[in-house]
Computed example of a mutant assay.
Amino acid sequence: MTAAADWTGKVGDTWAREWQRTEQSFVDLEQALARAILSVTPTSGQFLDLGCGVGTTAAGIAAARPDATVTGIDLSPALVATAQARHTAANLRFVAGDALGGSVDQPLDLIFSRHGVMFFADPVAAFTHLRARCSAGAPLVFSCFRARRHNAWAAELGAATGQPIDDDRAYTPGPFAFADRDFVADLLARAGWQGASAATVDFDYVAGTGADDAAALADALAFFTRIGPAAAAIRACSDHARAELLERIGTRLARYARHGRVAMPASAWIWTARA
Rank of each mutant, 00 (worst) to 15 (best):
T2W: 13
V11T: 15
G12Y: 02
W15S: 03
T22Y: 09
S25D: 03
Q31Y: 05
A32W: 06
S39L: 03
V40L: 10
L48R: 05
C52I: 05
G53I: 05
G55V: 04
T56R: 14
A58I: 03
G60K: 13
I61H: 07
R65K: 15
D67W: 02
P77H: 07
L79D: 01
V80C: 02
T82G: 03
Q84K: 14
T88K: 13
A89Y: 05
F94A: 09
A99M: 02
G102V: 04
V104K: 08
D105R: 14
I111K: 06
S113V: 06
G116H: 02
P123T: 11
A126N: 08
F127W: 15
T128C: 10
T128N: 12
T128P: 06
H129Q: 13
P139T: 09
V141T: 14
S143A: 15
A147W: 00
T172W: 01
F178D: 01
L188V: 04
R190V: 08
W193D: 11
A196F: 06
T200A: 12
D204N: 14
L217R: 12
L217F: 09
D219N: 12
F224P: 01
F224T: 13
P229T: 11
A230H: 03
A231T: 07
R235V: 10
R235G: 07
L245W: 08
L246I: 03
R248C: 03
G250N: 04
R252G: 02
R252D: 04
R252I: 08
R255E: 12
A257T: 07
H259W: 00
A263E: 00
A268W: 04
A268T: 10
W269L: 07
A275W: 07
